[in-house]
């Protein structure tokens, strides 16, 4: 209990979360973040390297890392795993031809030790495009039900219309908060105790 108290205190002071946006190239990661931030989404170029965005969401500060997903960049994803509280996996729901590729990349990420504690949100993006796959189809195409190592959720969304983007972030923040931060509500306390998987390595947030 002593250690947990310290962890809670440290975390509470900072109230920071580190969220990693990954997914194949063209999925819409950068567009989602720009839309959330109220920026123009028209002239976005494919990401060569990464972007960082900081949002204040309720009482939390979110540091969001958006890393390019072109094939040649994927080997570098691992450089961003450290201290990740949540992984947001963005899928281009219209890209049927690369669903297998998408599934393989996701499942190999989930084997990473450094992502072990992270919550997982799957954004089934581009739902505004006629002909895109539904979130249920994507859930099966990506074999999400086989994921036992991470708390996951899939949400259909559109970066163009903004549909479900905030809802997605809400879930991520809520899920991470329940795991990591001490919350005053009884329900959250219960989850906190039953969740239990807090490691001291989660403590230091300063970078």
């Amino acid at each position: 209990m002593g250690l947990l108290t310290i962890i809670r205190k440290n975390r509470q002071k900072e109230k920071e979360m580190r969220i990693l946006f990954l997914g194949l190239d063209n999925a819409g990661k950068t567009t989602i973040l720009k839309k959330l931030n109220g920026e123009d989404i028209m002239g976005i170029s494919p990401t060569l390297g990464f972007n960082i965005k900081t949002f204040v969401h309720g009482k939390y500060t979110l540091n969001i890392w958006d890393v390019g997903g072109q094939r040649t960049l994927r080997p570098y994803w691992r450089n961003y795993f450290e201290q990740t509280d949540a992984l947001v996996w963005v899928v281009d729901s219209g890209d049927r031809m690369r669903m297998q590729d998408c599934k393989e990349e996701l499942h190999s990420l989930l084997l990473e030790d450094r992502l072990a504690g992270a919550s997982l949100l799957i954004f089934a993006n581009k739902q505004d495009i006629q002909g895109s796959m539904s979130s249920a189809e994507i859930r099966d195409a990506l074999d999400l039900p086989s994921i036992k190592t991470h708390q996951w959720r899939i949400l259909p969304c559109s970066a163009v219309t903004g549909h479900n983007l905030i809802e997605g972030l809400d879930w991520v923040v809520g899920d991470v908060a329940n795991r990591i931060y001490y919350s005053s509500t009884a329900e959250a306390t219960d989850r906190w105790q039953s969740g239990g998987a807090v490691e001291p390595s989660n403590v230091s947030v300063e970078k």
Binding site: L144, P145, K148, W152
Partner: peptide
């Protein structure tokens, strides 16, 4: 198959 997630299935997941 129902989602294996520990979170309750959402309305959106169900209907789709």
């Amino acid at each position: 198959a129902p989602p294996a997630s520990t979170t309750p299935a959402t309305a959106s997941e169900q209907s789709t």
